[in-house]
Design a protein around this nucleic acid. Structure first.
Lengths: 212, 212
DNA sequence: TATTATTTCAAACAGTTGTTTAAATAGATC
DNA sequence: GATCTATTTAAACAACTGTTTGAAATAATA
């Protein structure tokens, strides 16, 4: 079976910690659970990382890597509507697509930090949200025009983010509202298509409002 | 000073519990903290409620009362666009308006349960979300027309909910993105106006898509 | 007032938490 | 093989958790 070719204990701890933190949240996660899954001693975390908090920081560093955004092929030569569609397609794929490495855990941790912000949320925002938010803002600025009031831009920007995070957040509720609802994951394209249309329609309505 | 005119210990515990549960979440809240704020003994919770879990249930019962929705004055004689605006105005007022009793704590608890669902989320959904979701769904059905595919209706419905819950969820992130952002609470009308326009525009775009 | 029932209280309980300790083991270097 | 460093281990630690206990204090009833 070639089981666990005597892998580094530190790495095993990190992997286990990612799982447990994403699954239970920081507070509910116990060092004994993590060490158990890593086949390590209870003292292993404090030896290799110093503390549970430091381990969490290491997990965040791993889950939200530094240079995440690739080269910007989605650049201004393209029409802004097309760029918005690409942007949403990328984001949706990352959030909802299966088999994306530790992406599922990434967004689980992200959601937890949003609901109960700790001082670590600063780090996550800087690593994960900031660059994406800037890109979206520039796209929206192109769509809405140069003389768009700042608060309209801000509202619209977070509106579209909300549309994307929608299912991530509302899923447990939808399950309880209409239990037999079809799974979004099976039709991400349909979801992206819907959100893109909805967003462009909304943006145009807001744009028209400004002129009037 | 006429301090705490010897109020019922049970009531004091309930009030304190609402605060603490909303502030810290169920797990992080401690019975000693709650009893301390209520000027009661540590054993008071177990005497008056039976357990910490039972106290939490009592809190939910208090925070999400049974007959919350008033008489439906927002009925079909009105044009659906107007009904949508009224609906959003009501919802926004309840979520974001200050001085609304324990509404702030209500949504804090709601948010926590969404991020980390417990078996109590069923109760909250039944009490708080279900009737509102039904009302929105009927409004959207009128706007989008009778031959709207079910999944489009479902998507749109949760889209609009996402737009409303937006600031509730994203607030800690926005604070870290652009720290000097003006507070939404000061201009709820503006926010509602924006969301209404954005929603109607989005709905029309989705509607147009169906025909094409 | 005497006798109940209800409520409060300090103390202790058993369990879990993250962390520390000191000894045992393994690996490397000479 | 001996010496030194790095790692692992079982056990214990102190602090905290929700809960229980049994005796006081209070209120209600007769």
């Amino acid at each position: 079976m070639n089981e666990t070719h005597d892998v580094n204990t530190k790495d095993a701890l990190l992997s286990a910690a990612i799982e447990v933190f994403a699954d239970k949240g920081f507070d509910a996660a116990t060092v004994r659970d993590i060490c158990g899954r890593a086949n390590a001693n209870v003292a292993a975390i404090n030896y290799h990382f110093g503390s549970k908090d430091a381990l969490y920081v290491a997990v965040l560093e791993e889950v939200f890597p530094k240079e995440d955004r690739p080269v910007p092929v989605n650049a201004p030569p393209l029409p802004p509507e097309q760029r918005l569609r690409n942007y949403l397609r990328d984001l949706a794929g990352e959030i909802y697509e299966r088999g994306n490495g530790m992406v599922v855990q990434r967004w689980a941790i992200f959601l937890r930090e949003m609901a109960k912000p700790s001082h670590n949320l600063d780090f996550i925002v800087r690593r994960q949200v900031q660059p994406r938010a800037n890109e979206l803002r520039s796209i929206l600025a192109d769509i809405l025009g140069p003389d768009t009031p700042d608060h309209v831009l801000a509202f619209s920007s977070s509106n579209i983010w909300a549309l994307m995070l929608d299912h991530l957040l509302i899923q447990p509720i939808l399950e309880r509202l209409t239990p037999l609802r079809p799974d979004i994951m099976g039709s991400i394209d349909e979801f992206v298509d819907h959100v893109t249309k909805f967003s462009l329609g909304g943006l145009n309505a807001v744009k028209g409002n400004m002129k009037g």
